[in-house]
Design a protein around this nucleic acid. Structure first.
Length: 339
DNA sequence: GTTTTGATGA
DNA sequence: TCATCAAAAA
C-alpha cells in the first residue's frame, strides 16, 4: 500500500504524512507553519484512502478552503486527488498530494523500471514510426519528489512508484512516449487505445480537470484542438477516417487531456460497456463544446447523472442499432468498416 | 489512461 | 459465453 503525503506546493515546510484512513485535522499551527488569523486551527479534516489514491477534505473553519478554484464551503466535503491543488484558506497556502511506495530498506525493494515490456498489440496498426529509440532511462518527472523524500539519501536512481492515477503526468514527460510537443502542449499515444488511432493532447501546465478550467484557458484549449486536428489529418488513411476530438466528462486520470480518436473503434483494448459509452455518449464532450461553454459561461459544467451514461445499452454510433453484447457490437462494427 | 483478475450469475 | 461487480496493482 502506498503512503500518502500532503505536500506544501511552495515547499515552505516538509510534507505531512497522512495515514491510511486516519482523520487528520489541520490548520493554523506549527505543522503547517500557517500563522494567518483567517485560518482556523482546525481548518480542514483530511482522511486518506491510500489504496484508491485520494483524500477526502472537509472544511471545518469558517473561511474558505478551496480545491483548485472551487470553494469547499464550511461543513462540505470534497475529494482531493493527485494533480489537484488544495488551498488551506482564502486561496493561500497551496498543497498537493503524493502517493508513493514506502521503501524502508534500501536495495531490498523490487525493481520498477518504467520502460519495461510494453504490450505487443500496439505495433499492429503502426505504419510510421520515426524514432525507435528504446532507451531504458526515464527522464525525471517534473514534480520535485526529492523535496518530499527526506529519507532518500542514497540510491537516487530509484524514483518512488507513482500512483496509477498520475500515469499521464509521468508518460507526458517521457520522451519515448511523446509523439509531438511544442511550448504549450505534448501529444502521446493512448496507452490503451480504443481505436486504431487514439492520441491524447496534454498541456504542460497542470490543469487537473474540466472543473478547473477558466476563461484564461480558452486559447490553450483552442491550441490543443488545432494540434489534435493536425494529428488526425496527418495520420495514414486520414482521407477515409473520421475522428472525434473531445474530453471525458469524468476522467479517471489526473491532468486534463484531449482525446483524439478515430471512429473505427477497432481495438482489442475496447472491452466493455464503459469503454464504449465513454466515447459514444454525451460522456464524451466535444472539444468545441467545452470551448464554447467556457467562452459563454466562464467555466465548464458537467451535468449530474453523467456517470449513468456509461451504463446505457450498447448502441452503434453509425446506425444507432442496439447490440446486446460487446462481441456482437464488434462484429457489427466490422460490417460498417468493410462497406 | 486505469487495467487486470477473480467470483458470481445470467 | 458474456456481463457485472469488487479488489488489487503500481
Amino acid at each position: 500500500m502506498p503512503t500518502c503525503w500532503l505536500v506544501r506546493a511552495d515547499e515552505s515546510h516538509k510534507p505531512i504524512q497522512l495515514l491510511h484512513y486516519h482523520t487528520h485535522t489541520l490548520g493554523r499551527g506549527p505543522e503547517t507553519q500557517i500563522k494567518d488569523q483567517k485560518c482556523s486551527r482546525q481548518q480542514v479534516e483530511l482522511r486518506a484512502d491510500c489504496n484508491r489514491g485520494f483524500v477526502t477534505v472537509k472544511q471545518l473553519g469558517s473561511n474558505p478552503t478551496s480545491l483548485d478554484d472551487v470553494v469547499v464551503g464550511k461543513g462540505n466535503q470534497v475529494t482531493f486527488k493527485p494533480g489537484q491543488k488544495l488551498y488551506m484558506v482564502n486561496r493561500l497556502y497551496p498543497y498537493t498530494l503524493q502517493f508513493r511506495e514506502e521503501s524502508t530498506s534500501a536495495g531490498a525493494s523490487g525493481e520498477k523500471s518504467k520502460a519495461m515490456k510494453r504490450p505487443h498489440q500496439r505495433d499492429a496498426h503502426e505504419e510510421r514510426d520515426q524514432d525507435k529509440e528504446k532507451s531504458c532511462r526515464v527522464s525525471a518527472p517534473s514534480c520535485s519528489n526529492s523535496a518530499a523524500r527526506p529519507d532518500q539519501t542514497h540510491a537516487p536512481e530509484k524514483e518512488p512508484a507513482a500512483h496509477w492515477s498520475q500515469g499521464l503526468k509521468v508518460s507526458m514527460q517521457d520522451p519515448s512516449m511523446q509523439v509531438y510537443k511544442d511550448e504549450k502542449v505534448v501529444v502521446i499515444k493512448d496507452k490503451y487505445p480504443k481505436a486504431r488511432f487514439h492520441w491524447l493532447v496534454l498541456p504542460w501546465d497542470s490543469i487537473s480537470s474540466l472543473k478547473a478550467l477558466r476563461p484564461e484557458h480558452v486559447e490553450l484549449l483552442k491550441h490543443m484542438e488545432r494540434i489534435g486536428a493536425r494529428m488526425a489529418q496527418q495520420c495514414p488513411g486520414s482521407d477515409t477516417l473520421r475522428f472525434r476530438l473531445g474530453y471525458h466528462a469524468i476522467p479517471s486520470m489526473s491532468h486534463v487531456h484531449l482525446h483524439v480518436i478515430s471512429q473505427d473503434f477497432d481495438s482489442p483494448c475496447l472491452k466493455n460497456k464503459k469503454h464504449w459509452n465513454s466515447f459514444t455518449t454525451d460522456y464524451f464532450i466535444e472539444s468545441q463544446d467545452v470551448i464554447a461553454m467556457l467562452e459563454r459561461d466562464g467555466r465548464v459544467s458537467v451535468k449530474d447523472g453523467t456517470s449513468e451514461l456509461l451504463k446505457l445499452p450498447l448502441r452503434c454510433h453509425v446506425c444507432h442499432q442496439e447490440q446486446t453484447t460487446i462481441p456482437k457490437l464488434k462484429e457489427h462494427l466490422r460490417g460498417h468498416a468493410s462497406s
